[in-house]
């Protein structure tokens, strides 16, 4: 077997731009997912029955739908049926953030509910409103609980972002595929792509671990 690592002489800029887009999509999707997750989690624990039901349905639906199916449905299916056309990157960010928003909502909900009821009651007894109690008393305590699972979710986000290659987004995976078809060097390109994904995932986990340790 022969390796031809010199193919990267010509293609490393492709890979670099793919990596850039992968990071961009992952970060954008994560930011949106964090907001969506928080909103859905708050609706989920609210006292209003319709809002709770909506949040519950959201969580169940977007966690259940396979991401690949969702991406293809949104980009091709919905566009055909309604004429709403998203840019591929936009479509990818929407799908990733909606699904991960559902996962994060569950993470947040369990984090919030892990805080003893007595904390709410102590704040209420001092005259705090529910919203202020959440912001000042509950959220800071829940925050520490949700950091590790949220970081895991970020790792999944990076990995899942490879799926948007199917709608023609030139992120890391698709750039590797194109480079491969131009050079017929699948082993070299896919090995590098895999190593980059692994490095990103490990790097993020490591950062999360440091943040977690700092807060103890």
């Amino acid at each position: 077997m022969e390796f031809h690592w010199e193919v990267f002489d010509k293609y490393w800029t492709w890979i670099a731009s793919g990596l850039g887009l992968t990071l961009y999509i992952s970060i954008m999707s994560m930011v949106v997912a964090l907001v969506v997750g928080l909103i859905v989690a708050i609706l989920r624990i609210s006292k209003s029955v319709p809002l709770t039901l909506f949040a519950h349905a959201y969580i169940e639906f977007f966690r259940a739908i396979p991401l690949l199916v969702f991406i293809i449905w949104l980009y091709y299916g919905l566009a055909m049926a309604t004429g709403i056309n998203f840019e591929p990157v936009m479509a990818g960010v929407i799908c990733l953030s909606m699904q991960h928003g559902g996962y994060l909502a569950e993470i947040y909900r369990s984090g919030i509910q892990a805080i003893p009821k007595g904390q709410w009651e102590a704040a209420y007894s001092l005259g705090y409103s529910p919203a202020r109690t959440f912001v000042k008393i509950i959220a800071p305590q829940a925050f520490k609980i949700v950091i590790p699972p949220t970081a895991n979710q970020g790792v999944s986000m990076i990995k899942d972002s490879a799926l948007v290659s199917v709608i023609g987004v030139n992120e890391l995976m698709r750039q590797s595929m194109i480079a491969t078809s131009n050079t017929f060097r699948p082993f070299e390109f896919y090995t590098v792509a895999a190593l980059i994904y692994v490095a990103l995932a490990l790097g993020l986990s490591h950062i999360a671990k440091m943040v977690e340790d700092r807060m103890k």
């Binding site: 003893p116 007595g118 904390q119 009651e121 102590a122 704040a123 209420y124 007894s125 001092l126 005259g127 705090y128 409103s129 000042k136 008393i137 800071p140 305590q141």
Partner: peptide, 29 residues
């Protein structure tokens, strides 16, 4: 809420705010 500000409550399990110092626990409200 006004009623609650006039009514102090002490619980069996204390329910102090664990992320705040003793002084902050007392002064924040």
């Amino acid at each position: 809420r006004l009623l609650r500000t006039e009514t102090g409550m002490v619980f069996q399990q204390f329910n102090l705010f664990p992320h705040k110092t003793v002084l902050e626990n007392v002064s924040m409200a």
